[in-house]
């Protein structure tokens, strides 16, 4: 991997993330791509810890820390005030965890999408409430251990990507830190598009919550894509689907085996999860075929 990012130093080192954290890595790609003419909204999450305690900040832009359920409404309020004052150029981005997005913040997000607010919303999805010690969220996948689902989560991960695409917003994309070029390109696209709600959900391995080694985030992230559990794609206006990186035949078992949160799985569980992944992929694949636009494998 030879990733080059124009380091604008919007996001800076010296923050309090666990060494090897992919939430911090995603923040670096997202913020440095958005650039300094940006205001960020951050709800309680590991992102807020990484943003820093007063009077320190890892982000050299205005950061507004809001309540857990209010990110989208807070970001929209900033944007509308800027517009009222004649500023049409500043990016307003909400960067929230999966709990703050899929669960408690979903009502505000869905409404902001329905109103097509001119904001960028980035969900850094580490598949659980990590800041409070790794509890289940509705982004936690089937069978995964969390402290609130000690025998494994009985229900599947909520498909927030499809739900957001169904709001017919101008741009929805999935991304992950193991594909930094793809992630940065998507952020740049969202930034340059302007107008309307642009949503990116980024799978961000959490070392502690997933039970992976400090240096295993990149490989885990890539296997999520290669095994098909988290395909990378974009949807414009709710109907133009583009696949960027789909499954490459890697068995799901390999992805699961590197994570302690799946340590309790039986071979039957693994088979069950593989079937779930296959089913989801089949359903998604059909959308690339039947979309209004051509199914291009974008770079």
């Amino acid at each position: 991997m030879n990733y080059q990012i124009a380091e604008q130093r919007v996001f800076n080192p010296g923050h309090a993330a666990c060494p090897g954290c992919h939430v911090a890595l995603a923040m670096r790609f997202v913020l440095n791509t958005l650039g300094p003419d940006t205001i960020a909204v951050v709800p309680p999450s590991c992102i807020a810890i990484i943003a820093g305690p007063q009077p320190l900040s890892s982000m050299r832009i205005p950061v507004y820390q809001t309540t857990l359920e209010a990110s989208a409404a807070s970001a929209a309020g900033i944007k509308r005030a800027l517009v009222a004052k004649g500023n049409h150029h500043t990016n307003v981005v909400a960067i929230a965890g999966d709990g703050g997005t899929y669960d408690i913040g979903f009502q505000a997000l869905s409404s902001a999408a329905e109103r097509n607010e001119d904001i960028i919303y980035v969900c850094l999805d580490n598949e659980g409430y990590m800041n409070t010690g790794s509890q289940k969220s509705s982004a936690t996948p089937s069978r995964a251990y969390t402290t609130s689902t000690p025998s494994g989560k009985p229900t599947p991960k909520k498909n927030v990507a499809e739900i957001m695409a169904a709001h017919n917003i101008p741009y929805m994309a999935t991304a992950t830190t193991g594909y930094p070029d793809d992630l940065a390109r998507k952020v740049a696209r969202a930034r340059d598009m302007k107008g309307g709600l642009r949503f990116i959900v980024v799978l961000t391995p959490c070392l502690d919550g997933w039970g992976i080694a400090d240096d295993d985030g990149p490989k885990t992230s890539r296997l999520a894509v290669e095994s098909g559990i988290f395909p990378l794609y974009e949807v414009e206006n709710g109907n133009r689907y583009t696949l960027n990186h789909g499954p490459e035949g890697a068995p799901l078992a390999g992805y699961l085996a590197r994570q302690q949160r799946y340590g309790h799985l039986s071979p039957a569980d693994v088979e069950f999860l593989q079937a779930e992944v296959d089913r989801n992929w089949e359903r998604l694949q059909a959308k690339f075929g039947s979309a209004t636009g051509a199914a291009i494998k974008g770079g």
Partner: peptide, 20 residues
């Protein structure tokens, strides 16, 4: 802003005010 709840109405009111 035609919000979906009073909670969001106040959340947006706060940031709009803090933006000046």
């Amino acid at each position: 802003m035609t919000m979906e709840s009073e909670h969001s109405a106040m959340a947006a009111a706060i940031t709009a005010s803090l933006t000046g």
